[in-house]
Computed example of a mutant assay.
Amino acid sequence: MSTDYRISDLMTCVIANLLKDRETVFHGVSSQLPMVAMHLAKNMHAPNLVHLNIPGGVNPSSIKQSSFSSAGADLVDKSESYFPLDEIFDLSMRGKLDVAFLGGIQFDINGNVNASVIGDYNKPKVRLPGGAGSAVLIPTAKKAIIWRTKHDKRTFVKEVDFKTTRGNLWKIVTPLCVFVYKNGQLQLDSIHPHTTIEEVQENTAFPLIYDHITYTELPTKAQLQKLKIIDPYDYRSVEF
């Protein structure tokens, strides 16, 4: 284990550790951190993982020159084959997509995800991108993983302002902890070694549910060394 890591390194390794060999995994736009995590998993423990992305690339050989949108043409140019976005939705609805990485702005204890508006829907304070892939992929992918680089009471709220989609989440990875969706509620799966249960609760608007406190596994030295090679431009830290 290594203590010489940043939050972006930890979250990338946590996400990579959630992925298994031979799984088919998809990431969308503005998904630099999970994109790097997928590449890390393929280089460490899941060589047969199938990497799908928005431009349609399958198993891009490198992400070193990938655009900051994580949707650059190079993800197709350096890939093994082409699999367009409409086919990914079809793949998921047929039950063949193992993991989908998705985002959101608000989450509540019941697993509701808001990616549509902040405030009243008819007169919103902020209008967000909307459901897009989340409305299709969260209900249909075998495992939906959400990452969020902010963990505060405006993000993890008592009740979301708008239900873009709900249910069928698997894990939510944040700078403080990992949530798991279990028995219809978000429950604490682990807290990161640099925080405390008190800090996590102070930054979460709903009461934490957990059987016992488990600490997230630290990145290994091998993982951190590999990250420097596969992500030399530090795309994994863009959102921080």
Rank of each mutant, 00 (worst) to 15 (best):
P175H: 09
T174H: 10
R148F: 12
T165N: 06
L137Q: 05
V136S: 13
T164P: 02
N168D: 07
T149G: 00
E202G: 02
I172G: 06
L137N: 04
L137C: 04
L188D: 08
D211I: 00
R166D: 13
A141Y: 03
V180M: 01
T164M: 06
W170I: 00
P139A: 08
A135L: 09
F206G: 09
G167Q: 09
L208C: 10
I172Y: 08
N168L: 06
A141F: 03
H194K: 13
L188Q: 10
T155D: 11
I213R: 07
Q187A: 15
N203D: 02
D189V: 00
D161W: 05
T140L: 05
L176G: 01
D161R: 07
V200P: 04
E198L: 06
T140V: 05
D211G: 12
Y181V: 02
K182S: 14
K153N: 14
D152L: 09
T164Y: 04
V200K: 03
H192V: 02
T155Q: 12
N203K: 15
C177Y: 11
V178E: 06
D152K: 14
I138A: 01
T196Y: 03
N203L: 07
G133T: 07
N203M: 00
V178I: 15
A135C: 04
V136I: 15
E202R: 13
T164H: 01
N183H: 13
T149W: 11
T155P: 01
Q201T: 11
T174F: 11
H192W: 00
A135W: 00
A205R: 04
T204C: 15
T165H: 06
R166C: 09
V160I: 12
K158F: 02
T140Q: 12
A141E: 02
T196C: 10
F162M: 09
K163M: 14
R154A: 12
F206K: 06
F156C: 09
Y210P: 05
I209D: 05
T204W: 10
K153A: 11
N203W: 01
I197L: 15
K182M: 10
V200L: 12
T165C: 14
V157R: 13
V157P: 07
T204R: 07
K171G: 01
P193A: 13
S190Y: 03
T140A: 14
G133W: 06
K153M: 12
T164S: 04
Y210I: 06
G167L: 02
K153E: 15
I191P: 05
P175F: 09
